[in-house]
Design a binder for these strands. Structure first.
Length: 145
DNA sequence: GCCAACGTTGGC
DNA sequence: GCCAACGTTGGC
């Protein structure tokens, strides 16, 4: 029964990183990392809401401007170890799946069903909640050439 | 490098 | 509690 609860409570996210700071390739090399450096309350609240097993679209900002793959939340939020400030938290993520074809921002802007995507509506937020529908559309795009 | 969009800070 | 000033992010 808990099984169904897990499925229903699952959330989907977009997390952003500049590839020259921490790329998806680096995450694959490391095998696991804590998602630090979030200093925005809205993004922080999203981090707190993340549950183990949630999937995150990994977006490369500035360079690439595309979602390159998926990461999985493997540990829920805890104090950001890089600061004493109790306001900030991290989660642990692992690489989950690298996309065959990355999904570019320009592509997503073209897609009608993604017009309300948080990434497009508020480009500055670094941790974005998305719907299952949006997630599915992105996955579909990643399977295309 | 520019600038729009947004968040934060601090004076009143 | 308002709002001007400032800082940051990130697309272009």
């Amino acid at each position: 029964m808990g099984f169904f609860f897990e499925i229903n409570s699952m959330n989907y996210w977009i997390i952003k990183s500049e590839p020259n700071k921490y790329s998806y390739t680096q995450l694959e090399k490391d095998g696991r990392t804590f998602w630090d450096g979030v200093r925005n309350y809205q993004a922080r609240n999203n981090l707190r809401e993340m549950k183990k097993g949630d999937l995150c679209c990994y977006y490369h900002s500035n360079e690439g401007k595309e979602i390159v793959g998926l990461a999985k939340v493997v540990k829920e939020s805890y104090q950001d170890p890089t600061t004493e400030d109790k306001n900030w938290v991290v989660v642990d993520v692992e690489p989950y799946e690298k996309f065959k074809s990355p999904v570019s921002l320009s592509k997503m802007k073209e897609v009608k069903s993604l017009e309300n995507l948080g990434l497009i509506r508020n480009g500055r937020l670094s941790v974005i909640k998305i719907t299952k529908k949006e997630f599915d559309v992105i996955l579909k795009l990643s399977a295309q050439e």
